[in-house]
Design a protein around this nucleic acid. Structure first.
Lengths: 331, 331
DNA sequence: TTGTAGGCGTTATCAC
DNA sequence: GTGATAACGCCTACAA
């Protein structure tokens, strides 16, 4: 069934059918009615490709994220998709993996698809030399690029991110005020947000005249058993509290405490990040930073739509995080 | 930049450019070289829509799932996407929500997009009267439909699913052999797989001459606190073990045990489902059924590709589950 | 090995 | 209001 068939059956021209399909006002009620009936009877569906060809868009945006199996990104993708749906846009999902070369390939593959925008979930590595970054800047020449929880300067590049710096600054300060002096900082990557979190940690310590002990900054895989085992191997190290850049690592710290017989929060306070389901699953339940994924994603899509609508939008929007206090801390 | 521009710049016809783009063998090395150079210089990218128009496909399949924020589905989507990528296919993701009307809309929206196939993640409600089902059967007239963990008969409809019946049968039997007599069954929906799980539970009890006590079958939302609270409200009910159709509910049962001061597994054994990260996060760690999401998804995509390749594939493929034993049970 | 021309199904721009 | 008709950019016989 093509528009020609419908036109013939309805006794009108294809132009008229097209007008009916697209809800043009200048069609008489009578013909509109006839065409509608024929379309319904024949179960006609306009060909999306032809439509895309003519319009230059298929109302589709690309979402690239390293790994949707990660609960945080899954949530983000879910929110993004929901909001896009609300505007009548589709999304094509591409999981790139964390490797730079793979991310580059992901972007270049998606660029060939005439998408209306590219949304990157999860922070881009902050290494300014990275080939991905120059590629992204080039890509932005063709379509707008949005980073969710990442930062990149450039024309037609927009960033929406949680205020991870402030969030970690605040919680570090709370721990200090609660009397903690040896706060272990567990980080899992060199991403932009991981870096900002660490800066918040260091700044808060400095603000309270505490030295930053490099041994208290531990790089670690975001996995419960891996973190537990890493901590078990640090027998020389003493610490009275833990801030982790991901909930999984914080739970690993709880597991470590359980193995060592440390009481949480009395002997060890633990703070996680993302306020994921893990944080209410473990024992005791985990104090965690909620970085407002829903708001972040809604803001992103609203901004994108405003942009596509020709409006001007801020290059960078920062969203305040919330600290969710639970039983793994005593402040 | 269109194919015409490239042709002009390279001093050849568009047909030749097209041949180069599509890797046709009948082009002289020399012209191939020239055309390649021009394409590189101009940063030419073929228009995907025009391509789709001509070929009738854009190598894209639709994935519809109720909610990617659910870790189980997120994993499934991740695996599906990864496998599709391997075959050079893209996926467009649509989160439908659980409501029947919304699912129907999701399918009909996706049907208009000239996709090569539709993959439905998460079980379809088994009510044969449902409008979604007839709609799906109709949809299958246009493109192949795959259900991951669901069942539907019909032409051009294919199902790949875990053997949930057997998995629950087996674990129920293990509990019985371990001396448990009052096994609480926690279920969260009337989906096909939830139904099969319950059948496995009842069959195993029957096989051991145990009555099915209807009060021991509890419907419950898949949420840790909701499950805990539900159990706390069942004060009259006695049970010595719990089988949950989702890990979240099993963790809820653990939380309930903690509140009541019941020792796990001595006084209460708990079994979850999906072997999600929750199962190693809680305390004690959770015995859980692994339904082999990765294998399920790989099988799905391999089958799809075989089908698109013109081969015949089985209408239904059942994958055996694995029981992962941890500290919440003592068998 | 290469080029020409028609077709794919729309949308959009004209006339009428 | 409505109808021709030219894009849109590519693919693919068919010719040369």
């Amino acid at each position: 069934m093509t528009i020609y068939d419908i036109a013939k059956l309805a006794g009108v021209s294809i132009a008229t059918v097209s007008r009916v399909v697209n809800g043009s006002p200048k069609v008489s009620e009578k013909t509109k009615e006839t065409v509608r009936r024929v379309m319904a009877e024949t179960n006609y569906t306009p060909n999306a490709f032809a439509r895309g060809l003519g319009l230059g868009t298929m109302q589709t945006v690309g979402i690239v994220c390293p790994d949707v199996a990660d609960p945080y990104m899954a949530k983000a993708v879910s929110y993004l998709e929901k909001n896009l749906q609300g505007y009548g846009y589709d999304c094509i999902l591409y999981c790139s993996g964390y490797d730079d070369a793979d991310r580059e390939q992901a972007v270049s593959l998606l660029l060939k698809k005439q998408l209306d925008a590219l949304l990157l979930v999860g922070s881009i590595f902050s290494d300014e030399q990275s080939a991905v970054l120059t590629q992204l800047r080039e890509a932005a020449a063709r379509i707008p690029i949005f980073l969710i929880n990442g930062v990149l300067s450039g024309d037609n590049v927009y960033c929406v991110l949680g205020d991870d710096y402030q969030a970690v600054y605040d919680v570090t300060e709370e721990l200090v005020l609660a009397g903690k002096r040896r706060i272990l900082f567990l980080t899992n990557s060199s991403s932009y947000s991981a870096g900002r979190k660490q800066q918040g940690y260091e700044a808060a310590l400095a603000a309270h005249q505490l030295d930053v002990d490099a041994r208290l900054i531990l790089h670690c895989e975001n996995s419960i058993p891996a973190t537990r085992d890493l901590l078990l191997r640090q027998r020389g190290l003493t610490f009275d509290s833990v801030i982790a850049t991901e909930d999984g690592m914080a739970v690993g710290a709880l597991k470590y405490a359980a193995v060592c017989g440390l009481r949480v929060p009395d002997e060890l306070s633990v703070v996680g990040y993302n306020n994921s389901e893990l944080s209410i699953c473990c024992e005791p339940e985990l104090t965690s930073v909620d970085n407002r994924g829903e708001l972040l994603c809604r803001t992103t899509i609203d901004s994108l739509m405003a942009l596509l609508d020709g409006q001007t939008i801020p290059k960078q929007q920062v969203i305040k995080c919330h600290l969710i206090k639970r039983a793994s801390t005593d402040f």
